[in-house]
């Protein structure tokens, strides 16, 4: 993170819980996608969520900023429960960065406008300040040369780095990554993971859903393993990869680590 950026206003000090999920349940029709999820993420912590497809990890990520609703339980961010809808929810979302698998850059806006939209409209920052801050962030993620282009003119890896800059521009308290490298060509994965690892190193609180085991080993403070909508294990990465307890985790690791 650039040090020029003002620190997010947060009451939690390092080590205190920032995102807390308590007994969260959700169904998609008959499918119980989240079963009694309990998860606490401390300020500054990097949590990587692993699990087979359909395990509910993306849903978990999207539920944290209420892109998905949930039926029971509670989610608090920095001590505040998630509001149902409306302006309160919008305010809370502005403090929670989200990076999507499919980038979702605003297709009709330039790269620079993508990054300044939130700060000017939500934070009411003036245009010049927002732009100089945006250029700083674009430089940090290495795409400042592309500032005047449109998203479709950039490679996937560049687009995803812009998406990260767009989130960072809001000075989020926590960042959610929903399979950020799954839609990328192999040679572009590392440029995105490097930016994420840099963020982790600078103390950003991160919840990352990914299939990148290397990143989990390298950057995570904790690995959360999910299957069938449940959290089965939570461990330090080394522990998890060398000594998984549950059958599901052993099975999962045997399938992905043998290649």
């Amino acid at each position: 993170m650039t040090q020029a950026a003002p620190a997010p206003e947060t009451q939690a000090s390092p080590g205190e819980p920032l995102v807390v999920l308590t007994d969260v349940n959700k169904h998609f029709g008959d499918l119980h996608v989240l079963r009694d999820i309990n998860l606490s993420v401390a300020k500054g912590e990097v949590v990587v969520v692993l699990g087979p497809s359909g395990s509910g990890k993306s849903t978990l990520c999207r539920t944290i900023n209420r892109l998905e609703t949930f039926e029971s339980g509670s989610i608090t961010i920095d001590g505040q429960p998630l509001p149902e809808e409306g302006a309160e929810l919008a305010r809370l979302r502005s403090d929670v960065g989200m990076v999507f698998q499919s980038f979702n850059l605003f297709a009709h806006k330039t790269i620079l406008q993508n990054v300044t939209l939130g700060p000017t409209k939500v934070r009411k920052m003036n245009k010049a300040d927002a732009e100089s801050r945006a250029m700083e962030l674009l430089k940090r993620v290495g795409v400042e040369q592309q500032a005047q282009k449109y998203p479709a003119q950039l490679s996937g890896g560049q687009q995803q780095r812009v998406a990260i800059a767009r989130s960072l521009a809001m000075n989020p308290k926590v960042m959610l990554f929903d399979e950020p490298t799954s839609a990328l060509d192999p040679e572009m994965i590392n440029e995105v993971l490097d930016v994420m690892a840099g963020l982790a190193k600078d103390g950003m609180t991160m919840i990352v859903v990914t299939h990148e085991m290397g990143f989990a080993r390298r950057a995570a403070d904790r690995v959360v393993f999910m299957a069938d909508g449940q959290i089965l294990e939570q461990k330090k990465p080394e522990d998890f990869f060398t000594n998984p307890e549950s059958e599901r985790a052993k099975d999962f690791l045997s399938k992905i680590l043998t290649h």
Binding site: A90, R93, M98, N104, H108, K121, V122, R166, M170
Partner: peptide, 29 residues
């Protein structure tokens, strides 16, 4: 794509703002 509106909501735009800034400009085009 649905992701455009989701991204707009994720950076904290209200319904009105995401309509005005993200959805309608693309819809008109």
């Amino acid at each position: 794509p649905l992701g455009q509106a989701e991204a707009a909501r994720s950076i904290g735009l209200t319904f009105g703002q995401s309509m005005r800034e993200v959805v309608l400009p693309q819809a008109f085009r």
